[in-house]
């Protein structure tokens, strides 16, 4: 993949250096966003109880989604497409914490007790299995 990138980007003499910079930055943003999304998914599978899983899901919702949207905005330049992407990012920033708070609040009113205190969660899973 790196070889394909080098041969496609660096050796192509038609490109201006601003275009190369734009492509590199957008690939960097999308790749780090994908890393955060994957970490959030793993966290939702791995954490021991409901309230801690909320944190992992929130990580995906905020930084992962926003970074991928920023990368796509960098790819498209300043057009109507990028304005729509900004709008999607704005709605995600408003709605995802509200939905997370709603889920947490109704779990709290339904008397779901969180597991408190210091513990190592990889050990907990090993004990169960």
């Amino acid at each position: 993949m790196i070889i394909a990138f080098l041969s496609a980007v660096v050796l192509d003499s038609n490109l201006v250096w601003t275009e190369i910079l734009q492509i590199c930055l957008s690939c960097l943003a999308i790749a780090s966003g994908l890393f955060f999304v994957l970490a959030g998914s793993i966290g939702v599978l791995r954490f021991p109880d409901f309230y801690t899983r909320l944190h992992a899901a929130g990580m995906t919702d905020t930084l992962g989604a926003e970074l991928i949207l920023i990368g796509l905005i960098l790819q498209s330049g300043f057009t109507q497409t990028s304005l729509k992407l900004l709008m999607i990012g704005f709605f995600l920033l408003l709605t995802s914490p509200t939905a997370t708070h709603a889920i947490a609040h109704s779990a709290h009113t339904a008397n779901l007790k969180p597991k408190l205190g210091k513990h190592s969660f990889s050990k907990v899973q090993r004990d169960r299995s």
Partner: peptide, 11 residues
Amino acid sequence: VIGPNAEISPS
């Protein structure tokens, strides 16, 4: 999340 023997302390 990713650390091998990750410790959390929820409160």
